[in-house]
Amino acid sequence: MRAFNGKIARLALAAALSASAATNALAEDTDLIVFDWSGYELPEFHPGYIAKNGDSPTYAFFGDEEEAFQKIRAGFKADLSHPCSQSVVKWREAGLLQPLDTSKIEGWNDLNPGIMAMKDLAMTADGTAWFMPWDWGNTLLTYNSEKVDEKEVQSLKAFADPKFKDRVSIGDNVDDAYALASLAIGLKDWTQMTDAQFAEASAFLREVHENVRLYWADTTEIVQAMSGGEVDLAWAWNDAAVQAAASGAPIKSNRDAAEGLSTWVCGYVRLKDAPGSEEKAYDYLNAISAPEVATFLITDWGYGHANAKSMAGIDPKVLAEKGYDDVEKFVDKTLFQSPVPTELKQKMIAEFEKIKAGY
């Protein structure tokens, strides 16, 4: 009877999610709820899960990690979620996570050693695992090569150049916004940001705001905006240029901007008091680590996979084309989106909201 009632509860939850426009859920297998960025529900990311369980999980979506954090803290229930490096410590310290049982994750020992060495990211000092790194990539200057001369976008300062008024888009995402601003003022380690540097970075974002036509919420939105000619210059993730170019649009990324680019690592966590199946949660984590998923991730999205063994099996020509053949070069002149002090993060969130509102 307990299992039956649990199933009823999960069905009710999935139905509620499907009816919620705010949460924007996609209900499939109701035994597993994944709270994720839009786009990661594609079956190509978890074919092994579908093969074993007959369907995809139920998905609920968030626009950025602060939104996800607030919803979970307010009581929203899911089994797995997909935060990034700058948020994992905050989520863990807020008591939103439960440890991972690494003995149930088939590719755990194959995860990229460099990523796993990042302090307090995947594991705490006592050896407890909280986060499975999965995808990594950049946020970088992206432009329409038919309407913007490459010489005009050799600096991130271009985002604030009046010549691009109403032609710019940056993400509606506080982390990417302040990564851009930090780089623009010459700061590579935002964990050491002073009050004066915060004020300088915020002032730069206010200049950029004068040029912004839209703050994009997901890759689909920015790809459509750039491919359709609505904007010509964007601060966007790798996949924006990859997907736009695949559809024939003249969109390129500039990895060589003078001030650099931003690098991030995202992955999956198990949420505390998860309502669904523990077995299926690990089925999902194993499915997304498969070699064919790594190939899809880098080929179709332009992102690296955290499973080093899976990455090693990808055609070297593809790795070179996407820029992943030389990891040291990939992260050269980069601001790594590592966790910032909580007080600073709250200041960023509050200030970014003011900037977007025109204040």
Rank of each mutant, 00 (worst) to 15 (best):
A21Y: 06
L97D: 03
Y284R: 01
L96F: 08
C266W: 06
F45L: 13
E210D: 14
S253L: 04
P57E: 08
A312G: 10
V318W: 02
L140W: 02
G267A: 08
A74Q: 04
M348L: 09
A179K: 08
P47W: 07
E66I: 11
G228F: 02
G75F: 00
W237V: 11
E292R: 15
L205W: 02
P316W: 10
E230L: 14
L187C: 09
E28D: 13
T220D: 15
Q192E: 13
D101E: 06
T191S: 15
L156G: 09
A274Y: 01
V89A: 15
H209W: 03
H46E: 04
P57Q: 12
G48C: 06
D110N: 14
N254Q: 02
A60I: 01
D149T: 05
L140D: 00
W136P: 00
Y303W: 04
W37I: 15
N24W: 00
D149P: 01
I8T: 12
G127A: 13
T139L: 00
L141K: 09
P162V: 02
D79T: 12
W216E: 11
A320V: 06
N24Q: 08
F69L: 13
K188W: 03
A160D: 01
I222F: 08
W190G: 15
H209F: 07
V331P: 05
L335N: 13
E328N: 15
I170K: 12
A16K: 13
N138P: 00
D195I: 07
V269D: 10
W301T: 14
E93Q: 15
N238M: 08
A201T: 12
A129D: 00
L140E: 00
Y49S: 11
D176R: 13
F296Y: 14
A240Q: 04
F296L: 04
V208H: 06
V89S: 13
T334S: 15
E200M: 09
L319G: 06
I185H: 07
P339V: 06
Y282T: 09
G171Q: 14
W37R: 14
W136I: 06
H46P: 00
V168K: 11
Q243T: 09
D161Q: 10
K309W: 01
N53W: 09
A158W: 02
L319A: 12
